[in-house]
Computed example of a mutant assay.
Amino acid sequence: MRRKLFITGIIAAVLAVFLWLPLSNYPISLAVMKVYSGIHKSNSVMEQKGISLEIPGGGITQEKDWYPFVMTFNDSAGFRQFIREKAGKLNLGKKDSLELTILYNFPAFDYSKGCSLLYNPQSPYYNSFYGAYLVSGRTAEGLPYGFTADGSLDLESASQVPQFDFQRLVLADLGIRASQQVFDWKIESVSQNVDYVGSSGWTRLDASLRVNGVIHRAEGFRRSYLQYGRCAYDPKDYGLEDFAPVHMKGRLYAKYFSEWDTSIFFYIMTGDEQVLERCDAEILSKSILVTE
């Protein structure tokens, strides 16, 4: 009996030490996000509409670049609220019926720090994400989200999806107040009738952005630390303030699918041109979207 208690005590002590070490943040992240993402996937636009979409994770490349799998998150109510505020139509007139699912991935973990390279201002992957947005349903004007009556891309509304995602979901969860948030979007080029992920008719948009960086002094617990790890980089070590704005590059591929009444936007946001092009060529463009 004493031997069993002794062994149990040793195991508990080893486990406690492991959980205290930064290295433990990575397996915790993997376990939590696998379950949490699976719950959201079961209630996603893909499940509702019968859309088969698979986006590769970081395991598709040999480099230590991205988290191993792409995650799913739904926030239809929050997104509808956001676009009504942007349009100045909060609680006025006919409302939209939009549903939003976000597929996303972020930079790989730095095991020694116990957190994602997302936080590292010296990494080419700082502040970077890629994935897809699926918006089903119609706007209050009866149009597919992100598109005009003639079927062309609505450049203003197309920018609102990543803005909502980054400001309301990423930054807010990390503790920055709305009054401190920055999201400036300048379109650099638009290409129409682009072939992408196995079909034609996509619109590609490239933009320059100025947004908040995610480096900050970590104080207390935040839910986002479960997935990214607790920020282990001190802004002062890099001559920065918490959430100091940075210049980024964004790429968006957009197309409306009438068979699903769903607009799909593939996206990449990163501060490094080479990371953007490599992510597009080696990962995002390898996504599988079954359209038949």
Rank of each mutant, 00 (worst) to 15 (best):
F183R: 02
Y233K: 13
V182C: 06
A218I: 09
V190I: 13
V214C: 01
Q192F: 07
R177E: 08
A232S: 13
H216Y: 09
A232V: 03
L169I: 10
Q227T: 13
K236D: 10
R177S: 14
A207K: 03
R210N: 12
E219Q: 15
Q160F: 09
Q227K: 14
F221H: 01
G198T: 10
S179Q: 10
S200Y: 09
D234I: 15
G213D: 14
S224D: 07
A218F: 04
Q167V: 09
Y196P: 15
L169T: 02
R230W: 04
R168I: 02
I176G: 05
A178C: 06
A207R: 04
Q163T: 07
A218W: 07
R168S: 14
E188Y: 00
S199R: 14
I215F: 13
H216V: 02
Q163V: 05
S191Q: 14
S200I: 12
D234G: 04
R210H: 10
G198S: 13
R204L: 06
S208H: 06
S199E: 14
E219I: 10
R222L: 11
V182D: 03
R222N: 11
D195M: 00
R222V: 06
V190M: 09
Q192M: 14
I215W: 05
V194H: 11
P162S: 05
L171K: 05
S200P: 06
C231P: 11
L174Y: 03
S200K: 15
A207W: 04
V194D: 15
L209C: 03
R217C: 06
Q181T: 05
S199T: 15
Q180E: 14
S208W: 01
S179M: 08
V194S: 10
I176Q: 08
G229E: 00
S189F: 00
Q160E: 07
Y233F: 15
S159C: 00
D234F: 11
N212Y: 07
K236L: 11
Q167Y: 08
S189C: 05
R223M: 09
V161R: 00
I176M: 06
V214L: 13
I215M: 12
D206E: 06
L171S: 03
G213R: 13
A172Y: 03
R230M: 06
E188L: 00
Y225C: 00
Q181E: 07
Y228I: 08
V214P: 11
C231H: 09
S191N: 13
V197T: 03
S224P: 05
S224T: 09
R217W: 02
G220N: 11
Q181W: 01
A207Y: 08
Q181F: 02
Q167C: 05
Q192T: 15
L169F: 04
G198E: 08
Y196F: 15
C231S: 14
D173Q: 07
V190C: 05
Y196C: 15
Q181G: 11
Q227C: 13
N212I: 11
G229H: 03
E219Y: 02
F164L: 11
F164C: 04
R210M: 10
S199K: 15
L226S: 00
D234K: 15
K236N: 10
R177C: 13
T203K: 10
F166V: 07
F221L: 02
S224Q: 00
A172T: 14
H216F: 12
S200V: 07
D234Q: 15
V182W: 04
F166K: 10
R222C: 04
D184V: 04
H216I: 00
I187T: 01
V190A: 11
